[in-house]
Amino acid sequence: MSSQRDRWAELTGGQAGEEYALRFARLAESGHDIHGEAAFCDALLKPAVRVLDAGCGTGRIAIRLAVLGHLCTGVDLDRSMLAVARRNAPDQEWLHGDLARLDDLGLEPGFDLALAAGNVIPLLAPGTGPAVVRQLAAVLSIGGLLVTGMGLDAEHLPLPEPTVTLTEFDQWCTQAGLTLRQRFATWDGDPYRPDGGYAVSVHSRSTD
């Protein structure tokens, strides 16, 4: 594991699992659609393909994608979040691991889609972004997709300021053999605006 704590751990102390799950349970009870990310990814996929939920948290998205018929593996460094995921979906694969050292987990490559939602990229440990993108690209099949969602300003982040720009992120992706295919402003597919505060990006693996 990396020696430096990720920004999520600095914010929560690694004890946010139950509170995070309760937040989304309340949203669902109030009528909010909490499955936007899963619906977005499902629309990109053929039936019953392999999905890696990188930074899966409490498993909300991976569990929904499994309901939709996909074969999902979740990875997270926060044990409190994984405890909720394992309780809610004990038959799914949930792995404790550092995304910057994903190769330590012995994952079989050939995933059709890797997902990093919920501001996973901005909340990584400082300096690990390029390594995480390389690791995610490496487990994808040729043509496989990396789907990310990230805030670009303080309004869309649990941080006082952004930690990565889209230009930097796209550079990491290019260096990892990924090509930008689509970019949106929301998980509903609203058109991306350069002055917007959030970006949903779809990159594909184009090289070995």
Score class of each variant (00 low, 15 high):
2 S>T: 12
9 A>K: 12
10 E>M: 14
13 G>S: 05
16 A>T: 00
17 G>N: 12
17 G>S: 08
20 Y>L: 07
22 L>F: 01
23 R>N: 03
24 F>C: 04
24 F>E: 02
27 L>M: 14
27 L>S: 07
28 A>W: 03
30 S>K: 13
31 G>N: 07
31 G>R: 11
32 H>F: 10
35 H>S: 10
39 A>N: 09
39 A>S: 12
41 C>I: 14
42 D>S: 14
45 L>Y: 08
47 P>C: 07
49 V>N: 03
52 L>S: 11
54 A>L: 15
55 G>Y: 06
56 C>T: 06
62 A>R: 05
63 I>F: 06
66 A>S: 14
67 V>P: 00
68 L>D: 08
70 H>G: 04
71 L>M: 06
73 T>K: 13
74 G>D: 02
79 R>D: 08
80 S>C: 02
84 V>P: 04
85 A>P: 01
91 D>V: 00
93 E>V: 09
95 L>A: 09
98 D>S: 07
98 D>A: 09
99 L>Y: 06
100 A>H: 07
102 L>Y: 10
110 G>D: 03
110 G>T: 03
112 D>R: 04
113 L>F: 06
114 A>K: 05
115 L>S: 07
125 A>Q: 10
126 P>Q: 10
127 G>L: 06
128 T>N: 09
129 G>V: 07
130 P>E: 09
131 A>H: 06
132 V>E: 13
137 A>K: 10
137 A>I: 04
142 I>Q: 15
148 T>A: 14
152 L>F: 12
155 E>L: 11
162 P>A: 13
168 E>K: 05
171 Q>M: 08
171 Q>S: 13
173 C>F: 02
176 A>L: 07
182 Q>L: 12
187 W>R: 08
188 D>P: 00
188 D>W: 01
191 P>F: 11
195 D>E: 15
196 G>S: 15
198 Y>W: 15
199 A>V: 13
199 A>K: 11
200 V>G: 06
201 S>F: 05
202 V>S: 00
202 V>K: 00
207 T>Q: 15
208 D>N: 08
